[in-house]
């Protein structure tokens, strides 16, 4: 679905005369393959290059070096630009700054209108998309009156109405409260499972990564760690060095091991912890 080879991205800072004064390397030779239907979570703290990576997949940014392929299309191929943006939809952090229209259904229609879908079909797609994010009853409402989580779901509907194969979500939950976070995450998982859409979720909340197929930890423009959530979260020490959280159970298990308790290193749930402790006692 997505193939990234040796991707490098430099941001150029210009001084007052327009000459390049500084080069900041946001991505430093990154390789990544995403299979169709995967649910990938990318973790990393601010400035690790994860947002830059997201914008490459949607062809909003282009490589300084290296290549990005989306569904067999190279992002630098100008003729394929709109196909790539239609196939790889994107959700941003602040829902207020993504909603264009003042009525929910008109906003969802914005994408399909841009790619020239006939009116009759747009209405059908809008209805289906709103239904799949559970917002159909709000179709005639003004987005201003919705909660943060609801607004973000409208944004997701706006992307699915374009029938993408893949959705990249760039910290969609960062500005939401806990209940809004749960709503958005549930929607993302459901789209992945029921409609087979590939999801790349960028976040810094580790609890959103626990049910992912694969977790990728980024640091300094590169992939620092990757694997299943269990593999990644059992490497407590490395995660701590990167200033990232791990689930409290994993952290507790790690602390107990450090104190000499003989329990497995890859504990992810409290049931597993209890089992392990019982084993030690008997």
């Amino acid at each position: 679905m997505i193939k990234i080879r040796k991707l490098i991205h430099d941001y150029l800072k210009h001084d007052e005369d327009g000459a390049v004064s500084e080069e900041i390397r946001a991505l430093a030779g990154l390789d990544l393959d995403v299979k169709p239907g995967e649910f990938i979570v990318i973790l990393g703290h601010n400035g690790c290059g994860k947002s830059t990576l997201a914008k490459h997949i949607n062809a909003l940014l282009f490589p300084s070096e290296g290549e990005v392929w989306v569904d067999g299309m190279n992002t630098v191929d100008g003729e394929k630009l709109w196909d790539i943006r239609q196939e790889a939809g994107m959700i941003f952090q602040n829902p207020d700054n993504q909603i264009i229209a003042q009525v929910v259904e008109e906003d969802v229609a914005f994408g399909p209108e841009n790619i020239g879908v006939p009116g009759e079909k747009i209405r059908k797609r809008v209805e289906e998309s709103l239904k799949s994010v559970g917002m159909l009853e709000y179709r005639r409402k003004s987005p201003g009156r919705l909660s943060g989580g609801q607004k973000q779901r409208v944004c997701i509907a706006g992307v699915i109405a374009m029938r993408p194969k893949c959705i990249i979500m760039d910290e969609p939950t960062a500005m939401l409260d806990p209940s809004g976070r749960v709503e958005v995450l549930k929607t993302a998982r459901q789209l992945n499972r029921e409609e087979g859409i590939t999801v790349i979720l960028i976040t810094h909340y580790m609890e959103e990564a626990i049910e992912a197929d694969r977790v990728i930890v980024m640091d300094k423009g590169k992939i620092a760690l990757q694997g299943t959530p269990r593999e990644v979260f059992s490497r407590v020490e490395e995660m701590k060095d990167l200033h990232l959280d791990v689930p409290q159970v994993s952290l507790l298990a790690w602390e107990l091991r450090r104190r000499g308790l003989k329990i497995p290193a890859d504990i992810l749930t409290r049931e597993e912890l209890a089992d392990a402790l019982e084993k030690v006692i008997s």
Binding site: L60, W82, M90, I115, I122, M162
Partner: peptide, 16 residues
């Protein structure tokens, strides 16, 4: 966000 949703001016746009 508009660019990501394929906005490219009025050319070739349809209406719901």
């Amino acid at each position: 966000a508009m660019e990501a949703r394929c906005y490219r001016g009025g050319e070739g746009r349809t209406r719901m």
